[in-house]
């Protein structure tokens, strides 16, 4: 049924720290790698070595410029994947029941065998978190690595989403956002985590942490570089060459 569960006791999701993300795209690659061999059909590319390659990705890193009224702009790297929304519009529009939200942990998934590839769910998602597989013609989306997090065949520290495990900057966190005592919930509370596009009414579970404010001191006025160079020349001349230099100048 593509009706949404009334509520889910556990809300698994990600917390993404926009202050720490360095925009290296490691999470993009690890996601692609894991999902090419894991859950469902391979996450395909079309024309991978041709002129116009086009691939399906479940996680993409955008880079934005944020320009205040005054002062220099900030560059923010911005990873984006499915936010496993509480009121997921992608689920309710699905005509086949292929899209569903799990009552036990809130993960939004696609049953690929039932998907007719109509693409309506991708239209309904405001964030662009769903992409049609160019080869299998079924809808793909972030599974929150449902095939890792409960997988007892892999070592315990690997039982988190691949992107979280991979991030070299520690910018991605995974946990139960319904539990106020969880590490992720505390992080959200401490850092003022926020929702993307709250006006769309999707109730996203994933949260984003804002970049920390810049260091308050203003950049000190730099002395004129030409003066600096001139000063350096004067003080550099010491010893015999210094004497020679001064002697020659006096001539």
């Amino acid at each position: 049924m593509t009706s949404l569960p009334a509520s889910t006791a556990v809300k698994l999701g990600l917390v993404i720290d926009l202050d720490t993300c360095v925009g290296c795209h490691a999470c993009v690659i690890s996601c692609k790698e894991w999902n090419t061999g894991g859950y469902g059909s391979a996450l395909a590319d079309a024309d991978a070595y041709g002129d116009a390659p086009l691939g399906a990705f479940l996680n993409r890193v955008h880079t934005f410029e944020v320009k205040p009224e005054e002062g220099p702009a900030t560059v923010v790297h911005f990873p984006k994947s499915c936010l496993h929304c509480d009121d997921a519009p992608c689920v309710t529009v699905c005509p086949t029941g292929a899209s569903y939200k799990r009552a036990e942990d809130g993960i939004v998934l696609v049953n690929e065998d039932a998907c007719i590839g109509c693409g309506l769910c991708a239209w309904a998602c405001p964030y662009g978190a769903r992409e049609m597989d160019p080869v299998e013609k079924v809808m793909k989306k972030c599974t929150l690595c449902v095939d890792r997090i409960y997988n007892e065949n892999i070592v315990e520290e690997d039982r988190i989403p691949s992107c979280v495990r991979t991030c070299p900057a520690g910018a991605r966190h995974f946990g139960d956002l319904n539990d106020p005592a969880s590490a992720v919930s505390e992080l959200v509370a401490a850092r003022g985590g926020f929702d993307l596009m709250p006006e769309q009414g999707t109730g996203p579970v994933n949260k984003y942490l804002p970049p920390r404010p810049r260091t308050p001191e203003p950049v000190p006025d730099l002395p004129d570089l030409a003066d600096l160079a001139a000063d350096a020349r004067e003080t550099r001349a010491e010893g015999f060459f210094g004497w020679l230099d001064r002697a020659l100048e006096r001539l």
Binding site: V66, K67, P68, A73, V76, L196, P198
Partner: peptide
């Protein structure tokens, strides 16, 4: 609103 960064600027 899409990035939640509006408070920082455009």
């Amino acid at each position: 609103s899409a990035t939640g960064l509006g408070a920082m600027g455009k």
